[in-house]
Amino acid sequence: MTFILRRLAALIGVLIASSFLVFSAMYAAPGSPENFLVQGRTVSPEVLEAIRAQYSLDDPFLVRFWNWLTNVLHGDFGRSLANQQDVGDLLAARLPTTLMLVTLAALIIIVLGVGLGILAGTRGGIVDKIILLGSNLGFAVPTFFAALILMSIFSVGLGWFPVFGSGDGFIDRVWHLTLPAFALALPSSAVVARITRTSIREERDSEHSVMARARGVAERLVMRRHVIRNSMLPVSTIVGVHIAGLIAGSFVVEYAFTLDGIGTLLVHAVQRKDFAVVQAIAIVLVAAFGIINLLVDLFYASIDPRVKVETNR
């Protein structure tokens, strides 16, 4: 329990530090926000003055940071400079697509990556060779390229899936997000499959598996209880790392499929220097990244009795 509290405290520390980092980076950025707001039109100094006052641009840096941080804690992420919308509302509207995309991709990594890895590790022979080759190439396929290829084959060519958009309602969304999720999950699945295979190979020859066989335990049981079960320990960490990594990967895939998720929002905000939006998304993503990593560690501690959560780190 103290372990969880300590990790949570560390996470909060990291969040505050990274908020500061992000905020000061945006503050130090060349080009002033009011120039962005007036979009190159010549305006009178009075109007500029008014804009600066409206956005509190004249307050000292630390005061602005403090105001921003306290507002964020109250759920107020400020307003988008580009279209005056409330950033919190924007995020809330975009979140479901991203969440669903990441969840689907995570499922694919677990089912496809781990599944193929187990198959390769336990079968050997030609199955193993094919999966190994696939994983050696698969990890090298950029998600955006996979996205285009899947789109051109299954959406444009065969017409099985929609080309763009995120869909409405649960079923329709899943249908719209299937191809993006596969594109997003492909490289990770390849890596996970290979690591699972290696892990299975190692456990298969481990002393406790060999001795279980020597004691007359049926091979099927040895596989299930000793080989596969134990090889899942290192695999679960890898899967966790990759699921956390999906957060960043989702920007690219969302953009490729023009999905209305957080990622597309971020890309557009970066292109337009809409700092309020960039800041907010950065903080939310760092938090999500940290929380997933924390959950993975907790999960690992819960399945491996050797990890004592009290003394870990």
Binding site: E207, H208, M211, A214, D304
Partner: peptide
């Protein structure tokens, strides 16, 4: 036929009681 190996810590599956 039973066997006793050298290192008991390797013989027992580390994640099972």
């Amino acid at each position: 036929v039973s066997m006793i190996a050298q290192n008991p810590h390797a013989v027992l599956n580390p994640v099972l009681p």
